[in-house]
């Protein structure tokens, strides 16, 4: 396989070998899943918070595909999260309460929205794109508000799910089966994204992020590829939105808020973009910070936002690659300067 090496080098062969192994699972990648299971058994009182964290991880992962990998900045990712949420809720309240069907429909609906909005929006870049993504989600929120006969308006929709695969009931009291359900969906969502980013498609996305002009010059139809990743990302965000409301049995226009778009982007930047586990770390730290400051300082809103603000400022100033970037640096120090970094 590496027969083409010239006489003087093992160097090229070693480089090729590195690329051939880059996508392999590292043993440490099991840690988040062990932690997630440990939380379930050891901290049952925190299952609600932990469930929310798991959903936000999936949401942030979907955002990482476009922001971190393809370099498409968005402040409107709740457009897809919210669409998935409403589709699931509307199905459940209209006699199609199967949660898995709900997820599939949410993904499909969000994907269609991703195709339509992406096709138009992704012809722009930078600030224009940022504002347009925002505008789409605000528009959808207005629509959800105005068509209150369908969406329940401000009060939203309450609904009940049927059993998963006709067997397991989603409990909204102790979050036991709900937690496992969300964890399993996150696991498959993560595997999908991980597979994509290590495949040539994912490498191609990084190319677009690094230099759009050169990508065109090597024959890449950039707009078309941006739209395809936007669709994939939208579908996964739609699934996250569906999970969010399925475990609560309730949806309100909150799922379309621009604030939530901002929050998930902050989680991602906090954890580190373009590195998968940044989403895990960012969503977890953000949510824990949010709930502890609420408990410690009281529920006056400004305080916890103040705390998040400080952490974010510190991250952006001193750790441009996010918390996971710091983690990578520490690991490197311990190992001594060896191998290239995870990307």
């Amino acid at each position: 396989m590496t027969s083409s090496t010239g006489t003087p080098t093992g160097s090229l062969a070693r480089s090729v070998q590195f690329l051939q192994r880059r996508h392999r699972f590292h043993w440490a990648e099991i840690i988040p899943w062990i932690l997630a299971i440990a939380v379930f058994y050891l901290l049952p009182g925190y299952r609600l918070l932990a469930t929310q964290i798991l959903v936000m991880i999936l949401f942030a992962l979907s955002l990482d595909l476009i922001v971190g990998y393809a370099g498409i900045i968005s402040l409107g990712h709740t457009a897809f999260f919210g669409t998935g949420a409403y589709i699931t809720a509307l199905m459940a309240s209209n006699d199609i309460p199967d949660p898995i069907l709900g997820l599939i429909a949410a993904a499909a609906g969000a994907a269609v929205l991703g195709l339509v909005s992406g096709w138009v929006l992704l012809r722009t870049t930078g600030l224009t794109l940022l504002v347009l993504t925002m505008a789409v989600t605000i528009m959808l929120q207005e629509l959800a508000n105005d068509f209150d006969e369908i969406t329940g308006g401000f009060d939203g929709i309450n609904f009940t799910n049927s059993e998963i695969l006709g067997l397991i009931e989603l409990d909204q009291l102790w979050y036991s089966s709900s937690y496992i359900y969300v964890l399993v969906v996150l696991f498959f969502g993560f595997l999908t994204i991980r597979t994509i980013v290590y495949a040539p498609f994912g490498r191609m996305l990084i190319g677009i992020r690094e230099n759009t002009q050169r990508m065109s010059a090597i024959g890449t139809p950039v707009h078309q590829r941006q739209v395809s990743v936007y669709i994939i990302s939208a579908a996964i965000a739609g699934i996250a939105g569906a999970l969010w409301v399925q475990v609560q049995g309730n949806v309100t226009t909150e799922v379309y808020t621009f604030e939530l778009s901002g929050e998930v982007l902050i989680m991602l930047i906090l954890g580190g973009t373009g590195r998968l586990y940044g989403a895990f770390l960012g969503a977890t730290v953000y949510k824990i910070l949010e709930s502890t400051t609420e408990q410690v300082l009281g529920t006056d809103e400004p305080y916890w936002q103040f705390a998040i603000g400080i952490v974010l400022i510190l991250t952006v100033l001193f750790a441009r690659r996010g918390l996971f970037g710091i983690f990578e640096d520490i690991v490197k120090k311990f190992k001594g300067a060896s191998k290239g970094e995870v990307q």
Partner: peptide, 17 residues
Amino acid sequence: NATGILRPAGNYSEVME
């Protein structure tokens, strides 16, 4: 093969060669 999403990029030996 730039749109391949299933096989890891490192497994395309013809590209590496």
